[in-house]
Nucleic acid binder design. Structure first.
Lengths: 159, 159
DNA sequence: TCAATGTCCTACTAAAAAGGTAGGTTATTA
DNA sequence: TAATAACCTACCTTTTTAGTAGGACATTGA
């Protein structure tokens, strides 16, 4: 599991699509402007996202991209994997200095951990990221209203 | 949160230390041989790990490195952060095209997610990675013994 | 029909990061 | 005092990142 700027761009762009879902196809030019990612770079990323069937495209004027599935069924791990194409492995399998069997121990520990991270990201879908944020904003607004009504000193509200 | 080979090397090396904890200082040469990471590269990584007080060193013959704390109190996120020194930000804060406020939405969604990942890795300590593996191995061994005794067909055991 | 708008595709490139070399100095031990 | 191993700095090669350039193809609407 790698997690670089490339993956971040892809997730950000997919979130952008999710947020504007239902407004018809979204052009990469729009995303480029909104998210500050170069158009050509987005094109390369979306070529991969399309090959992995995470988005579908509409060509021609008024065209653009849409999520190919519901935002609630697209998981972060899929997105990251699509654009990052794990060269990975790096296993000591073919290594000369890894002959005693027990030596591989921590290598395997790492792959175990890596698998945990992957599963974690495989449980976070686009819709829930958006929902989580909206819930937080609602809570923030409510807290502010309470402040207005009860006029608690700021310090107590913090806690 | 970045997650590259660099971070993997660091975590792997730290796991190696954790596994050999109690055997006195472990030299980087040992880790280099066991894990297949170049000595000089390890030196660079451990300079950072030491600055972040995750390991302590003993110089001279018989010297090496040891975890500065119990393996159960060292978390993966700390290790990754130590060596990866997030250039990060990449926030649109100073961006020209990010003026309408609402435009930043997905940027913020990403940082939210990033924070989630960070918290996840901040809850996994070295000892628990090792423990989890040992538990699994015990389970595997027991299953094998059961096979021996009951002689179930392999297919049923799988399920 | 044709110009505009978009995806789609390939090749190239500048800059940064990853990963590794080289060549030391310093502290410690036997 | 020789060997060991941390510690430090500068450099270098390769890979990856992020972006450019230039176009072909599909679709729309004027």
């Amino acid at each position: 599991m790698r997690l670089t700027a490339k993956g971040r761009y892809a997730v950000t762009a997919m979130l952008d699509l999710a947020v504007h879902q239902g407004e018809g196809p979204i052009s990469l030019a729009d995303i480029s402007e909104r998210q500050g990612i170069s158009l050509s770079y987005l094109e390369q990323l979306f070529a991969k996202l399309r090959r992995n069937e995470l988005v579908k495209s509409v060509r021609g004027p008024g065209g653009g991209y849409q999520l190919s599935r519901e935002a609630g069924t697209i998981y972060v791990a899929e997105i990251v994997d699509s654009v990052d194409e794990r060269v990975d492995a790096t296993r000591c399998a073919g290594r000369a200095n890894c002959h005693h069997g027990r030596e591989c121990l921590t290598h395997e520990l790492w792959t175990d951990l890596s698998e945990q991270i992957h599963q974690f990201l495989n449980n976070i879908d686009l819709a829930s990221i958006i929902a989580k944020r909206e819930a937080r904003e609602r809570a923030d607004r409510q807290r502010l209203q309470q402040d207005d009504i009860i006029r608690l000193p700021a310090k107590e509200v913090e806690a």
